[in-house]
């Protein structure tokens, strides 16, 4: 596919010196093309996205209750959140723990399986499909029932443990373990980062391995010297995205705890709490304040990641 032009171009590139035609330099230095390519995004951003975002910022300083006009209440929402809201602290703790544990686990699984499934082996497409299947289920209602079949007191996990003489607790409804069952669910649905890793692996030019193997490099060395560095943009992407998604994680807890975050608020994810405030208890203004605090936290984290990415993410330039 399209190998001819790329070949031609690539050869041209190797011959080419540094001097570029002046119109190109001019075009590059000008902003025209960039903004032109971004035009659809700009229309969407200014037309559909920005307005609601700014309004939610405004609402975070009001007492908006969904049904009557919002009233400005200054920073009252934020004051309450930071001084008198135990559920805010609890939900932040739950969410942080979830992110810190589930994101690395999920990424490790996804990368490991992607590496395994990238190799030449019979039936790989089938395996890939099977490993992706759980992610296809998304947030189906069926998941709630399924998860109880696995993790309740008499569920499959405990039946298995009984073979070793272990009597397990009811994982899903014991506040000590319930969050772990949600982590298990998140890790089980590792299909999306796996696919992205696979696509990333496919983008690594084969001839780099050829050259390395001529130099007598072993498999591990090639993984460390070629695969891993060239995969860093994708690893970076997956880490950022999974972290953001982890902070915003809503549906698993919503479905499995019936929207309550119980037992004893042990699965009260941040956005679940936010949702309860907004639609359960008619405090959309307060919920908006919660949302903007989350945005700041996630943005800080993301900026930090981008700053450090200079030192470990290798782009081709």
């Amino acid at each position: 596919m399209a190998s001819a032009p790329s070949h031609e171009v690539a050869q041209g590139g190797s011959v080419a010196g540094a001097a570029a035609p002046s119109w190109w330099a001019a075009a590059r230095s000008k902003n025209g093309p960039g903004y032109l390519f971004l035009l659809p995004w700009f229309i969407g951003f200014f037309g559909l996205t920005l307005g609601p975002i700014l309004i939610s910022l405004y609402l975070s300083f009001t007492d908006f209750d969904l049904l009557t006009a919002p009233h400005w209440n200054g920073g009252a929402n934020f004051v309450r959140i930071f001084t008198a809201d135990a559920k805010f602290i609890q939900s932040m703790r739950v969410t942080l723990f979830f992110v810190i544990v589930s994101v690395p686990l999920k990424l490790a699984f996804a990368l490991g399986v992607a590496l395994l499934l990238n190799r030449g082996m019979r039936g790989l497409p089938i395996y890939r499909a099977i490993f992706y299947l759980p992610s296809l289920l998304g947030a189906s209602v069926a998941i709630a029932v399924l998860w109880r079949q696995l993790f309740a007191g008499n569920g499959l996990v405990n039946q298995f443990l009984l073979n070793f003489g272990i009597v397990g607790p009811s994982w899903i409804s014991n506040p000590r373990y319930s969050l772990w069952t949600l982590i298990a669910l998140a890790v089980w649905q590792f299909g999306s980062p796996m696919i992205i890793f696979l696509a990333g692996l496919r983008q690594i030019p084969l001839d780099m391995y050829e050259a390395a193997s001529l130099d007598g490099a072993g498999r591990w060395r090639m993984f460390r010297k070629i695969t891993l560095p060239l995969l860093t943009p994708v690893i970076f992407f997956n880490a950022i995205i999974q972290t953001i998604e982890g902070f915003k994680s809503f549906t698993p807890a919503f479905i499995i705890s019936g929207g309550t975050g119980n037992p004893i608020n042990s699965t009260l994810f941040y956005t679940l709490y936010l949702y309860q405030e907004a639609f359960g208890f008619f405090r959309m203004g307060y919920a908006s304040a919660l949302a903007w605090i989350l945005l700041v936290i996630v943005a800080l984290f993301t900026s930090f990641s981008f700053l450090t990415s200079k030192y470990w993410v290798h782009y081709d330039n």
Binding site: A10, Q11, G200, I240
Partner: peptide, 25 residues
């Protein structure tokens, strides 16, 4: 974001060679 990461993984010489040939963006 996904596509940005992948595009950045493609060799930049491609663009530079193409612009030599007078290609538009």
């Amino acid at each position: 974001f996904l596509m940005v990461q992948f595009f950045r993984g493609l060799p930049k010489e491609l663009d530079e060679a193409a612009m030599m040939d007078g290609c538009s963006p």
